[in-house]
């Protein structure tokens, strides 16, 4: 590496420095104005960037499909046998549940509960992951033009995925339930204790602020409480794997295994109904297993 004298035009250097200094000042003094100014351009730029992004995402999905269909078939026979056993077991469970459903329907009618209004949802495809390593987020191929707005909840039939934090005209960014910056109001299904579900740095989730007297235990399921945010009540978040009860603490916390395999999620549903509209009609009922459009 040799040192050399500057050959750059002095004016260009001064201009670059001035631009950077101006940007620094503007970002610190007028952050919201700068953000607002750039938001006008976000839409068109989002549309333009979406073209190569979707093209490469579809090639990527095609390769992944081929891989899954032909190459990654090792151990499928054993898996198939195990799944057959599980089906048998689930059939037994299913018949029991049908009995329970019938009983629930009768009781619901007796109590004159209104039919629960399911939230409106938009299906979207995952076309990428967060551009940085600092956040656990996914990028969807639907944006403002499809009615998606920040803070909307995102789910799959298995459970909660995360919430929308940023949108452009044609895409949106979803902060996953496993990100430490995310917080969702949760409810332990068995004990009905409420708490806040946050992501952990290890890529799992934890439920904080569980009352000290709660009888929570490993294997308990945590669902959305529907009290805060845009998630209706009763969507599965995860299963408790470890309880953390510290001496002298006012609350206990629990580690959760998210129900959705966040690393493999390809299609999601964005809940468009705002809080209140979805929960008013069926305040007592859960949406378990019913997140269909």
């Amino acid at each position: 590496m040799w040192m050399a004298h500057s050959r750059s035009p002095y004016g260009a250097r001064r201009l670059a420095l001035a631009c950077f200094a101006l940007l620094l000042v503007a970002l610190f003094l007028l952050p919201s104005q700068i953000q607002g100014l750039l938001q006008y351009l976000d839409g068109p730029v989002g549309y333009v960037v979406r073209i190569p992004l979707e093209a490469i995402a579809s090639i990527d999905a095609g390769i992944a499909d081929r891989w899954e269909q032909y190459v990654a078939l090792q151990g499928v026979r054993e898996e198939n046998q195990q799944l057959r056993k599980e089906i048998e077991w689930l059939r037994g469970q299913h018949s029991q549940l049908r009995e329970s459903v019938a009983a629930t329907e009768r009781l619901t009618a007796l109590l004159q509960f209104k039919e629960q209004a399911l939230p409106t949802m938009v299906a979207a495809q995952v076309i990428g992951r967060d551009a940085t390593n600092r956040y656990r987020a996914i990028i969807l191929n639907k944006g403002e033009s499809d009615g998606i707005k920040p803070d909307m909840g995102v789910v799959t039939p298995a459970g909660v995925v995360g919430r929308v934090v940023k949108t452009t005209g044609a895409s949106s960014v979803v902060l996953l339930v496993t990100d430490p910056s995310n917080a969702i109001a949760g409810l332990i299904q068995r004990t009905r204790d409420e708490g806040v579900v946050e992501g952990t740095q290890q890529g799992l989730a934890q439920m904080k602020y569980i009352p000290l007297l709660s009888t929570v235990r490993d294997g308990d399921r945590v669902v959305t409480s529907g009290l805060v945010g845009d998630f209706p009540r009763g969507l599965v978040i995860g299963t408790i794997t470890r309880i953390d009860k510290q001496e002298g603490a006012l609350f206990q916390s629990a580690e959760l295994m998210p129900e959705v395999d966040i690393g493999r999620v390809e299609e999601v549903l964005v809940i468009q109904t705002s809080y209140g509209q979805s929960t008013k009609a069926g305040a007592g009922a859960d949406l378990l297993g019913k997140p269909s459009p």
């Binding site: 260009a12 250097r13 631009c19 989002g46 960037v49 967060d130 452009t168």
Partner: peptide, 23 residues
């Protein structure tokens, strides 16, 4: 390409990538 182009391209990259990040 020098500091001015480095700055401008860096800003453009930063802005466009931030549209696809939660950051």
């Amino acid at each position: 390409a020098g500091e001015l182009e480095g700055l401008l391209v860096g800003l453009a990259i930063g802005w466009v990538l931030s549209l696809f990040s939660a950051g």
